[in-house]
Design a binder for these strands. Structure first.
Length: 361
DNA sequence: CACTGCTATGATATCACTGG
DNA sequence: CCAGTGATATCATAGCAGTG
């Protein structure tokens, strides 16, 4: 794809590939000044490279003037394939490169949702503190097109529910979760420490609306018994729902691991679910380019270890490959590219420029 | 209209490479 | 070893456009 787009350049054979790193940064920053800061060179140097790119690609690429530059149609076409290509190149260079957790200062972006942030992240952090004190873990918001964010390198790893099968993604089952009920300990529906299906249906409920499965599978199970329930509250986060349960007669159906975490910190009763509900897999998902990355592999193993402990532990298994292309991880493990570090000079492609300190006048 | 923040450009310096 | 050359960098500054 990138080649197809570049083929339209007037002199493809003469194209300086080092300039593509600058172009990628320019397309992201839409500013010569900011691109220069990111690349660790002066603004005029980037301006000069931009002029060369314009000549070689026979297109103005960025137009506008002060403030933010605008991408031309040609630049827009180049942005995505160029970004992916450079991520692949960086991943290829990183593949096989040894990773030393004790010394690494890498930043891993792991989307885990509120369940993962509450259940998995604290465990991961306590391990990091000992094994990899300089590694930083960020947990970006789960919204948006997670698949695209994995592909773009914005996210390194997703822990949670399965993602729709997609070419280039690898998924690995790391745990299994079943549903339980959280309630106030003196909830009137609880009789001798038990909750019947009838009492469950008669009570009022709080539902985490973006969570889909709990609400729908609970209602389906009730329907099979000829029962219905009253949903009195809907919230958007699993983390906040237990607080509603604490101060009401509401019942909350949620995954056992987060329920146990909540019950450890709040005076709540955790009850086996009275309905027959399907349990569900907890998966890790990443981009295939990361499979061979030693650092990414280390992070995956850590996340898998912690997740398996937090959720119902069971041997990790691969998700079968689907027609649309999501690939299982063949061995317990293979690699990854992450965003280029924002540090100055990190994306520099010219060995000569990168290797020697330049004299200042 | 001055100020500010941006990009573009000319002059020049530095470095690596090459050939005598 | 050294001068010539090319690539690429910095510095200084021109010019443009939005803003108050």
């Amino acid at each position: 794809m990138l080649v197809m787009v570049l083929m339209r350049a007037a002199h493809v054979a003469d194209l300086d590939l080092n300039l593509l790193v600058t172009l990628d940064t320019l397309l992201q920053e839409r500013s010569v000044t900011r691109a220069a800061e990111r690349l660790g060179v002066t603004q005029p140097a980037v301006s000069h490279r931009l002029r060369l790119l314009r000549e070689q690609l026979d297109d103005p690429l960025l137009v506008g003037g002060r403030g933010s530059l605008h991408l031309t149609e040609r630049a827009r076409q180049l942005a995505a394939p160029l970004g992916r290509a450079l991520l692949d190149v960086r991943a290829a260079l990183r593949s096989g490169e040894p990773f030393d957790p004790a010394r690494s200062e890498r930043v891993f972006a792991v989307v885990a949702g509120d369940v993962g942030e509450m259940v998995v992240l604290p465990e991961v952090m306590s391990t990091l503190r000992v094994e990899a004190p300089h590694v930083t873990m960020t947990s970006p918001a789960a919204g948006g097109d997670v698949v695209a964010r994995l592909a773009s390198g914005e996210i390194d790893l997703v822990v949670g529910a399965p993602l729709p099968p997609q070419a280039g993604l690898v998924q690995r089952v790391v745990g299994r979760e079943r549903y339980v009920v959280l309630a106030r300990p003196d909830h009137p529906a609880i009789r001798r420490g038990r909750l019947s299906a009838r009492a469950f249906a008669d009570a009022s409920h709080v539902v985490v609306s973006r969570g889909g499965p709990p609400g729908s599978s609970v209602d389906e199970a009730l329907e099979r018994l000829g029962l219905r329930r009253h949903v009195a509250a809907r919230v958007s986060h699993f983390v906040t729902a237990p607080y509603l349960v604490l101060r009401s007669d509401l019942l909350l159906t949620m995954g056992e691991s987060l329920a146990r975490t909540a019950a450890r910190h709040l005076p709540l009763a955790l009850l086996p679910h009275p309905l027959t509900l399907p349990s569900f897999d907890v998966l890790m998902t990443w981009h295939e380019r990361s499979t061979g990355d030693e650092g990414h592999r280390w992070m995956r193993e850590l996340a898998a270890r912690v997740t398996a402990r937090s959720f119902q532990a069971r041997p990790a298994r691969d998700v079968s490959a689907s027609a649309s292309g999501t690939r299982p991880e063949s061995a317990p493990d293979r690699p990854a590219a992450r965003r280029p570090p924002p540090a100055a000079g990190a994306a520099r492609a010219s060995p000569a420029a990168g290797a020697r300190p330049r004299a200042k006048r």
